[in-house]
Design a binder for these strands. Sequence first.
DNA 1: TATTTTTGATTGACTGATCAATCAACAAAA
DNA 2: TTTTGTTGATTGATCAGTCAATCAAAAATA
Lengths: 203, 203
Amino acid sequence: MPKVGMEPVRRKALVDAAMRVIGDHGSLTVTMSEIAKQAGVSPALAHHYFGSKEQLLIETVRSHLQRLRDSVVTELGAAKTPREKLSAIIRVSFQADQFAPETIAAWLAFYAEAQRSEETRRFLVIYARRLRSNLLANLKALCPREDAERIAEGAAAMIDGLYIRQSLRSAPISIEASIALTEDYINALLAPLSQKAALQKDR
Amino acid sequence: MPKVGMEPVRRKALVDAAMRVIGDHGSLTVTMSEIAKQAGVSPALAHHYFGSKEQLLIETVRSHLQRLRDSVVTELGAAKTPREKLSAIIRVSFQADQFAPETIAAWLAFYAEAQRSEETRRFLVIYARRLRSNLLANLKALCPREDAERIAEGAAAMIDGLYIRQSLRSAPISIEASIALTEDYINALLAPLSQKAALQKDR
DNA sequence: TATTTTTGATTGACTGATCAATCAACAAAA
DNA sequence: TTTTGTTGATTGATCAGTCAATCAAAAATA
């Protein structure tokens, strides 16, 4: 029942299918056939709309990061103080759907792919920068710039590290525990600084 | 010039070659031909000694983790106090050869592979557990068990996270900065605990 | 010591399977 | 009749894995 205006529908179906298949498979060595089958179309159609497998995968990363970004924007809007915004960023990073094993597996596969695909790498770099700069902007409201930079770097690393450790599925850490570990890190590094600031004021 | 007793020599050459090729390529989708060529033998010989590509890759992970383990044992032996031992563990994790882009790329590829290969996953789980338990053992000498567990988890995540962020090669962090971030984390989380312990003693 | 036999090392050539990509053809809507 | 959506069939390339054959050292035998 071919109708007109199917292109956006098919593109979305294929990108979503790719995400699912990659997540299940835990790797980018999935076939166009598998993806197309999951999307309910023929492999030829996938090529028709995306031109190549590589391009489909790139669009898949892009869409995934876009969704993540939307979540962050929403949550940041709801948060009032800088400290609340920091918590919002952390919360989104460990959102249930983000932290699901298949999502983590896909995430990891994309990181590996970034070693070869310049375009995939570019998207991940943008994500990494955004995470860092979101953290940094709010930390700067709470402590001196240099400290903020250090803490942002550390927090970003901790978030990514909790992901990669999760991917092994030995001793899985709960969402709450992951959030707690990251919050602890920020609190522990901010504590002595605000103490110092208070002393400074007292003088 | 075929001589007897070549087996161990060839096995080592192939495993080393695999590590190099994977690192350069940034992915496990390397051909047996490439690996064999790098090792200076025919592809058929690689199959002769390892039976399959999968097995060669598994041996490669194994050998890599073995080397890392040896470094840790050596450094731990040289360190005296628990705090020094913690620093030794961190130092080894960011050793120059471990932190080289190709090594990190290979590392990442193995993590991705672990999603599919149960045996690869097993090795990485062993590594993760070892890192955690090395940290934990020494932290327990410095703070209560529950705190030690939290801190060990966080430090391990931070180390792995610094690796994965390094893999993107945007804003690379130096070895020293990586060590400093991890040390800072441990210091910041231990500080309030030893303070509390001191107060406890005073009472 | 001279010879034959066995054994381990090694490869070139081949096979079979997989898969991305192409294309010609058809169906329905405009 | 043109345009858009769709697919089955096919192609060409890539690769893991196999195999039979070769070669030289070592061991056994004469």
